[in-house]
Computed example of a mutant assay.
Amino acid sequence: MTNSFKDFHPVVNFYYFTVVIIFSMFFMHPIFLGISLISSFIYSVSLNGKKAVKFNLLYMLPLLIITAIMNPVFNHQGVTILFYLESGNPMTLESILYGVAAAVMFISVILWFSGYNAVMSSDKFIYLWGRIIPGTSLIISMVLRFVPRYKAQIKIISNGQKCIGRDVSNGNIIARARNGIKILSIMTTWALENAIETADSMKARGYGLKGRTSFSIFRFDRRDRITFLSMIGLTIIILLGSFLGENTIIYYPIIKIKAITVFSILVYIAYILLCMMPFIIDLKEEIKWRHLNLKE
Rank of each mutant, 00 (worst) to 15 (best):
L57T: 09
M91F: 13
K50I: 15
F32T: 07
L37Y: 09
I65Q: 07
P90N: 04
V53L: 12
S36L: 08
T92G: 07
Y59S: 06
G49I: 02
S95P: 10
L85E: 09
A68G: 08
N89L: 05
V73L: 15
L64I: 00
L97M: 13
L82T: 06
N89S: 02
L63A: 11
M60K: 07
S95V: 05
V79K: 15
K51W: 15
I35A: 06
F41K: 00
K51F: 15
F55W: 14
L61I: 08
A52H: 05
M91H: 02
S46E: 09
Q77H: 14
I96F: 11
G99R: 06
F32Q: 06
M70W: 05
L61E: 05
M70C: 10
G34F: 04
E86V: 05
P62S: 06
Y98Q: 00
S39E: 11
L61W: 05
T92K: 03
K51C: 14
N48T: 00
G99T: 07
L82N: 13
V45Q: 02
T80C: 08
L82H: 13
K51P: 10
Y84I: 00
I96V: 14
I38V: 12
L63G: 15
L37T: 02
K51D: 15
I66Q: 01
L63K: 00
T67P: 11
N71E: 12
N56A: 15
M91L: 14
L37R: 01
G99I: 05
L82A: 12
L64T: 02
T80F: 06
Q77S: 10
A52P: 01
I81W: 09
S95T: 02
I65P: 07
S46Q: 13
I69T: 03
V79H: 12
T67L: 14
L64N: 01
S36V: 01
N56H: 06
G49K: 10
I96S: 06
V53G: 04
L63Y: 13
Y43E: 07
K50P: 00
M91E: 01
L37I: 04
I66H: 12
L82M: 09
Y59G: 09
G99Q: 07
L64V: 00
P72R: 03
L64E: 07
S95I: 08
I42S: 10
I35R: 02
